[in-house]
Write a protein that binds this DNA or RNA. Structure first.
Lengths: 339, 339
DNA sequence: TTGTAGGCGTTATCAC
DNA sequence: GTGATAACGCCTACAA
């Protein structure tokens, strides 16, 4: 049983292949009788339309490309889930490409997506350099950047970001409300603008509370658990005790918390900890982690929605589409208050 | 600057489009001189081959479909990463479809992949019923089932599984070696064959050690953290103390551990815990979780490799391809031994 | 070494 | 209502 095409059906039904095409797309230009006859026949013969051939003539593939650093990252996974669900509802499918954060692979991925003629692209957690931007522009399809940074503006390129600064403010205000005064910030990877923005929020909240900003309370991390663990000595081994720490992200916070517990400190008794992201781990550790939740599923949906909108009004300049900044939400758990 | 096709290049180079096609595929049937001239021109004009058109005539899309329950699941995410990496190396791309474990969606996903004419399909963590199997067979492409169960054999369908029974044996032997004698098993979702196999391993290891199997030590769970939490009373509220628990999976184990710690018990002092899977969370909780690691990345690679192999020797019966069972590995951490 | 012609499976534009 | 015919972008006999 080889593949069956509309021509095969046409032969069996003794009509032309155009009639079959019309019947299957439920066109009004064909009699109800033959329409049903053909549709029944198609089902019997196990016909499945060839999307390739269709999109070749239609100029649309009903496919979007998603470029991620790594799907292992829980944040990315949840984002992709949001995208995929919304895409599926709109009859789109998703081609997944991961770059492992290597620029070469990222560009290769975009080239692949170009060849596959995707109708839109979503890129996450990337730093989009000038070269990369050039490749994205060559796609001639809408590109939405999620939590990414770009060196220069692109024609078709829009972005969705979480409000990092506001998140930092919320986190630190929460700690201040709890009475903490000596609050550390553990940074993310160097040179990362997300990190700088969260730090700015931290600083703003402190100054807002007439608490002077003390540079020595900013401890370097690396965005991973190891960085958080390594930060412990710099935090607990001081004369003037630090009682709380706001961390660049949840992984950092988890590393710090783990190290603190192992060293015999209590959380939040000796040290209150706030993270950022609200990855799934955050609610499965003990104590559960207080954090700033990124509205990640909303971001995924929103990204897909934006792509669809940009495609529809095929105004290349994407009128009435603007960059989006979504606020995170403070989620209070056991790492800052006793439960 | 609209899309440029080989015809456009042909016009610019003043040759026929067939010559361009040959030049770009580096055919020996074209002079080195014109070949280079055309290739340069193609680059200048920003040509990108149309994969759709190509695969329409070639009969191959260089695309595989991956059907998952949800990409949020860390196990699934890691599997997909393994698949994607190996696929990329073989110049394949991946279409991702998630089913949310709903049979209807799963079948819809397969139908979509059929329309997209993928060259192979990988399905994970699914129960493949008879209806579903029928749809898979209709694909006429190799299908590899990872950690899935099927009601009936399919023509093109092969499988990769972890050795659940052996994993159960390893886990319980480890606890026996540590001196535990009253060991509980917390089950997964009812009716799941993975669960039954792990239970069989548990039972075998006990009997091997002349320790009688006690049905009252088998406590129902649900495969999620909530199930583990709920199991605590049944475990700690007994006259004859239970000192260790082997859990269906890591999420169950984490739930149990969390509940135990909150109730004031120590781990592993009062209760030693072993999970199954080795999801990322397992090494980020405190104490870290001892578990049976599924060789998940290897499973991903292996699945993709199998698909490629099945496609190459297009013997429909897949001679010299057999189902694969991979052994898990005991990873000893702080939830069973003091570190 | 190169050009011409046909076809992959669709949809769309004409006639009839 | 229905049937030829062309087109989408590419590859590949066959001819020159």
């Amino acid at each position: 049983m080889p593949r069956v095409s509309i021509k095969d059906i046409a032969r069996s039904a003794d009509v032309s292949h155009s009639t079959v095409s019309r019947a299957l797309s439920d066109s009004p230009l064909v009699s109800a009788e033959t329409k049903e006859r053909i549709q029944r026949l198609a089902r019997q013969m196990g016909y499945s339309p060839d999307a390739q051939a269709r999109s070749l003539v239609m100029g649309r593939t009903l496919t979007v490309g998603v470029v991620v650093t790594t799907i292992i990252d829980p944040f990315v996974a949840e984002l992709v889930q949001g995208i995929e669900r919304y895409a599926r509802d709109g009859n789109y499918s998703v081609i997944l490409a991961s770059s492992d954060a290597e620029p070469d692979r990222e560009i290769a991925a975009v080239e692949m997506l170009n060849s596959k003629r995707v109708d839109g692209v979503i890129v996450t957690s990337s730093r989009v350099g000038a070269l990369y931007q050039e490749h994205l522009d060559r796609l001639h399809v809408p590109v939405v950047l999620v939590n990414s940074r770009r060196a220069q503006a692109g024609r078709y390129t829009f972005s969705i970001n979480v409000d990092n600064r506001d998140g930092g403010v919320q986190a630190v205000r929460h700690l201040l409300d709890l009475g903490h005064r000596r609050i550390a910030y553990i940074t993310g990877p160097a040179d990362h603008s997300d990190d700088l923005e969260r730090l700015a929020g931290y600083r703003h909240a402190l100054e807002e509370a007439d608490s002077a900003f003390d540079p020595s309370l900013v401890v370097p991390g690396d965005g991973r658990a190891a960085g958080g663990e390594a930060a412990l000595p710099a935090i607990m081994g001081r004369e003037d005790p630090i009682t709380a720490a706001f961390c660049y992200n949840d992984m950092t916070a988890l590393g710090l918390m783990h190290a603190a517990l192992r060293a015999g400190y209590t959380v939040p008794g000796d040290l209150a900890i706030v993270g950022f992201d609200d990855i799934i781990l955050a609610s499965h550790v003990h104590p559960r982690l207080t954090t700033i939740a990124q509205p990640v599923r909303r971001m995924g949906r929103r990204a897909m929605k934006m792509v669809l909108k940009l495609m529809d009004n095929d105004d290349p300049n994407g009128s009435n589409v603007t960059d989006v900044v979504l606020k995170g939400e403070l989620v209070v758990r056991g790492s800052t208050v006793f439960s």
